[in-house]
Simulated assay, not measured.
Amino acid sequence: MDNLKKIVIEPAIKQINKYTDIRIEYDQFKIDRAITGLQFRFSQKEANVLDIFAEYMNSLIPKLTEKQILFFANKLA
Rank of each mutant, 00 (worst) to 15 (best):
K67T: 14
V49Y: 07
F71W: 08
N17T: 01
Q44P: 02
S43A: 15
I52D: 01
M1A: 06
E46T: 13
I22P: 01
N48R: 07
V49C: 03
I31L: 06
I61Q: 05
Y26W: 07
Q39H: 12
M57L: 14
N58H: 10
E46C: 09
L60I: 04
L64F: 15
I24W: 02
K30E: 05
I16T: 01
M57K: 10
I9W: 00
F29I: 02
K45S: 04
P62K: 01
K5F: 04
F40M: 09
A12M: 13
S43M: 05
D27F: 05
K30I: 02
E55Y: 11
V49L: 08
A34S: 11
L70Q: 12
L76I: 11
A12E: 07
T36S: 08
I31F: 11
L60Q: 11
A47N: 10
D21Q: 09
K5R: 08
Q15L: 15
Y19A: 00
R33A: 06
V49R: 07
R41K: 14
E10I: 03
Y19E: 07
E10C: 00
Q68N: 06
K5C: 00
Q44R: 10
I16V: 08
K45D: 04
E25K: 15
L76F: 15
A77K: 15
Q68L: 06
L60S: 06
K63V: 14
I22Q: 07
L4F: 15
K6G: 02
N74F: 12
I7Q: 09
K67A: 15
L60A: 04
D21N: 13
A34T: 08
P11A: 01
I31C: 06
I16W: 00
I31V: 12
F40H: 02
A34M: 12
K30L: 09
F40L: 13
Q15S: 11
M57F: 14
I52W: 00
Y19R: 06
M57P: 00
I31M: 07
D21I: 04
F42R: 06
D27M: 03
Y26M: 05
M1W: 04
F53E: 10
E25R: 14
K67G: 03
L50I: 10
E55K: 13
K45Y: 01
P62G: 00
I69T: 11
A73N: 11
K67C: 03
F53C: 09
N74V: 07
F72D: 01
Q68G: 02
R41C: 02
A73S: 12
N58S: 09
R41M: 10
N48T: 05
Q28F: 04
L60V: 07
Q68S: 09
K67E: 15
T65Y: 03
D27E: 14
L76A: 13
A34Q: 13
K5L: 06
A77T: 13
F40T: 00
D51H: 11
D21A: 10
E46G: 05
K30M: 07
D21C: 05
S59P: 00
L60F: 04
Q15M: 13
L50M: 12
Q15D: 15
Q15W: 06
D51S: 14
N74Q: 14
I16P: 01
E10H: 03
I9A: 02
A47D: 09
K75T: 04
V49F: 07
D51Y: 05
T20V: 08
S59N: 14
N17M: 02
I9D: 00
A54K: 12
Y26A: 03
V49G: 03
E46D: 15
S59M: 08
N74E: 14
F29L: 06
I22W: 06
I22R: 06
D27K: 10
T20S: 10
